[in-house]
Design a protein around this nucleic acid. Structure first.
Length: 705
DNA sequence: ATAGGGTTAG
């Protein structure tokens, strides 16, 4: 139950993110790949690979002649001249034993405890220890990060383990493709898929196609998704009902009932009989779409009939339930819901889940039957389903929108008692909005306070809403309290300061006004413009306190002057010291150098005296010091894609160095992820755009190793 | 032992 909740929550989180359009930057990646493939992350790796090749040469020929089917799909053994640069094969599951299995289990425990930071850190630290994590462990952590929509952390970890020479397997690739799809970067996902096909020493799995087809359908690219399904069949993979279901869903959403039905026919032909119930809800929707209610209900009779061999689980039933509800089959829907609950017998047979209840709640709300909605919502515990934050928010929102705030607040109070259903930003914004609508400014303020108190981070829009609302309601002190609380947290800007200043002036809270003015003067991004200056003067004049501002400004000015003087003095001292040093250096360059090297004259007259001393501080910036030079030449340059990063990997990367090259903020930029993990709204996701984000491309480039 | 179907939403 815990896991299913996690999954549910993650889909919630995933939908929270709103991707940005990125600038495509199409580059030729293929030639680089072969270079990248050469590199082993560590000398140990390279040595191990050499030993492996020797062993292979020694052992394989006789074995092959006896049992040639032993390693038929291994490109290295197929190749008469094993290319040391060939993509590395991922480790077999059998590598997961002993200490490495212990490590794996330890990290799985961290994931189960939802301590992903620790899990990721542990994985990284183990990389260069004597107990290297297997790709299975890396995948587990990456999968957990993906589930929580922590894309940049996931890509960063991936990059790290890849640079360390942990060879990716098909699951790794699927995870990356999944991440790209979730970020609406379907082009990048397809690019990655192409690289997988062309370069990886293994084939895509059925799941690869599920992920890609779902991603394309979600991003309204049904036609491309259909093409991919055909590629899947060409690869000799079995027609997958899940893949067909996504396609049918996409076509139904496009109101293309004909093609949806045709796809079902195709699937039926390939499988003889489709016993996976997942397709039938959408199939019914396709019939309904074409006005063929009778056919739709025949399908329903088939799947729900006595002795039907169609396998229905909760997901399949939910889809059918939805089809009935959305097409006016109310009695059947109610009956089906009852039946789903009856058939439910965990742990083996799961025919109802949180999703079923959500569908019912929405349906009742649609009909205005809010008490029924609340009742069915409360009853989900009977079937050992437990509501999550999203399902609470959904119901609370419908109640708020229908003048049922007391019931909404009752549900809000229940949220804290249910694990996994803590109120989130969305919950509080709903309640705050509704409170203001109902002129309950105090309560709105209280919710805002609770929101901050519980560690949630209101965004600027929420802050503005609350402060504006409080000011309008004349609650200046409360507004000012939140203002001071949020100055740093939200990096409030001049406009926010001015709103507060105006309100304080108008309320004639002069002490507060002066305090705020002093704050504004301290912040060089804010300051006091002439309009505000006048505003403040007016307010003070009314109470005869104009002098207070004059004094404040004078104090400030004196402070500034003193500061400037101190700075100037310091600069002068430094310049003097510098001059002395330079004089010393040139004296040495003129004559002193020889003494350093005995009698030998420097053969190269171009040697810069400065670089000889390695004094980077005094060196002219045009003359690269030895230090700078070696940095440019040897440091692994994971961030500079395509700029010769691969050979650098061959040097033993010290942990710190590699970590330096994996800059999470760069990865954030890569996926346009903001610091809080939220993504900006896309203006337009363009497909024809030939350019792809450099960074995203770089990752694609790098993974196929 | 590592990925994986459907629904609600600013």
């Amino acid at each position: 139950m815990y896991l299913s909740k996690l999954t549910f929550f993650s889909t919630h989180l995933k939908t929270l993110t709103k991707p940005l359009t990125h600038h495509h930057h199409h580059r030729h990646v293929t030639p680089l790949l072969s270079i990248r493939c050469l590199s082993y992350a560590t000398p140990e790796e390279a040595a191990a690979a050499r030993r492996q090749r020797k062993r292979t040469l020694r052992i394989e020929p006789p074995l092959n002649s006896i049992r040639p089917q032993r390693r038929p799909q291994n490109p290295i053994s197929k190749n008469p001249n094993p290319n040391p640069n060939a993509p590395k094969l991922p480790e077999h599951v059998s590598a997961l034993k002993g200490k490495r299995l212990d490590l794996h289990n330890k990290i799985l425990t961290l994931i189960r405890e939802n301590d992903l930071d620790e899990a990721a850190l542990y994985t990284r630290h183990s990389i260069y220890s004597n107990c290297k994590p297997t790709i299975f462990t890396c995948n587990a952590v990456m999968a957990a990060l993906l589930r929580q929509s922590r894309y940049s952390d996931m890509l960063s970890l991936h990059r790290f383990v890849t640079q360390a020479g942990v060879a990716a397997n098909v699951v790794t690739h699927n995870l990356l493709i999944n991440a790209y799809c979730d970020c609406r970067k379907t082009d990048t996902a397809l690019e990655h898929y192409k690289q997988l096909i062309n370069n990886a020493p293994f084939d895509p799995s059925p799941t690869t196609y599920r992920i890609l087809v779902k991603g394309l359908v979600d991003n309204l690219k049904v036609d491309r998704a259909v093409e991919l399904k055909d590629e899947m069949l060409e690869k000799g993979l079995v027609a997958d009902p899940v893949v067909y279901n996504y396609l049918i869903l996409g076509l139904v959403k496009n109101e293309d009932g004909d093609r949806a039905l045709a796809l079902y026919e195709e699937l039926k032909e390939k499988l003889d009989f489709v016993n996976d119930g997942i397709v039938y809800g959408n199939l019914m929707k396709a019939y309904f779409l074409k006005g063929l209610d009778k056919e739709a209900m025949e399908i329903y009779a088939d799947l729900s009939g006595e002795g039907s061999s169609i396998k229905m689980n909760a997901l399949a039933y939910n889809s059918v339930l939805q089809a009935l509800i959305k097409n006016g089959k109310s009695d059947e829907a109610l009956q089906l819901f009852e039946r789903m609950k009856e058939e439910h017998s965990p742990p083996r047979k799961l025919t109802v889940n949180l999703g079923s209840y959500n569908v019912m709640v929405d349906w009742f709300c649609e009909q205005g039957k809010f008490d029924d909605a609340i009742e069915v919502f409360r009853k989900m515990g009977e079937k050992r389903s437990s509501p999550d934050t999203l399902s609470f928010n959904n119901l609370i929102q419908q109640l708020c929108a229908n003048d049922l705030m007391p019931k909404a607040e009752e549900l809000y109070r229940e949220m804290g008692e249910i694990p996994g259903a803590n109120p989130d930003e969305y919950t509080y914004v709903l309640l705050i909005d509704t409170c203001f609508e109902q002129s309950r400014a105090d309560d709105a303020a209280e919710y805002f306070g609770k929101m901050v108190e519980s560690g949630l981070k209101p965004n600027l829009a929420t802050y503005n809403k609350v402060v504006d609302g409080l000011i309008k309601a004349g609650k200046i002190d409360e507004a000012n309290g939140f203002f001071s609380q949020m100055i740093v947290k939200l990096r409030l800007d001049a406009a926010n300061f001015e709103v507060m200043l105006r309100a304080l002036c108008e309320a004639a809270k002069l002490d507060e006004v002066l305090k705020l003015v002093s704050e504004m003067l301290k912040d060089e991004k804010v300051g006091l413009n002439s309009e505000m200056d006048e505003f403040v003067r007016d307010a003070l004049r009314k109470e005869g306190r104009e002098g207070d501002l004059v004094k404040l400004l004078e104090d400030k000015e004196r402070e500034e002057r003193e500061k400037a003087e101190a700075l100037a003095k310091k600069a002068a001292e430094e310049a003097e010291a510098e001059a002395a040093k330079a004089a010393k250096a040139s004296a040495l360059a003129a004559g002193g150098t020889y003494s350093l090297f005995g009698d030998t004259k420097p053969s190269n007259g171009n040697v810069s005296p400065l670089s000889l001393f390695g004094d980077t501080k005094t060196s002219n910036s045009d003359v690269p010091s030895a230090e700078t030079f070696s940095m440019n030449g040897e440091a692994p340059s994971g961030n500079q894609e395509g700029s010769g990063g691969a050979p650098a990997v061959e040097a033993t990367p010290a942990l710190g160095v590699v970590e330096e090259t994996i800059d999470a903020s760069d990865l954030d930029k890569e996926l346009n992820i903001k610091g809080d993990g939220m993504m900006e709204e896309t203006t337009e996701a363009s497909d024809t755009d030939e350019e792809s984000s450099i960074k995203a491309d770089g990752v694609v480039e790098e993974i196929i190793v």
